[in-house]
């Protein structure tokens, strides 16, 4: 096979981004929207790290960016879930 080294990962990252963006627009339920956002975010993270690998040395800057990004994504997701629970709480 003569594919460039990161092709599969790039394809997966593009697909994940598309699935996430598409889901965010088409889904009705708020929880699904949040999941879709996370999927899209993972797509971007994959892209960043894959790009960091194409050079001669492994580039640590994208790794640092993704680590920061994961924590930021988790924080925002937690806030979103907190809001969803308050909005859609099951009546006791």
């Amino acid at each position: 096979m003569s594919l460039p080294p990161g092709t599969l990962f790039l394809l997966a990252s593009a697909l994940l981004f598309a699935i996430g963006a598409h889901g965010l627009v088409t889904c009705r339920h708020l929880l699904r929207k949040v999941l879709a956002l996370n999927v899209a975010m993972t797509g971007v993270f994959l892209l960043l790290v894959t790009l960091g690998r194409s050079g001669t040395t492994v580039d640590p800057v994208p790794h640092a960016m993704v680590l920061t990004g994961i924590v930021v994504a988790l924080s925002t997701t937690a806030v979103a879930l907190g809001l969803i629970v308050r909005l859609e709480r099951r009546r006791p």
Binding site: F17, G20, A21, L24, L30, K33, V34, L37, A40, M41, V44, L47, L48, L51, V61, P62, G69, T76, V79, A80, L83, I84, R86, L87
Partner: peptide
């Protein structure tokens, strides 16, 4: 709360796409 949720989703959508742009330029 509804307005905040809507705002959060819109802002996060903006963030994801912005970060994609950062990745592409990087």
């Amino acid at each position: 709360l509804q307005a905040a949720m809507r705002y959060l989703l819109a802002a996060l959508f903006g963030s994801v796409i912005y970060l994609l742009g950062v990745a592409l330029l990087y």
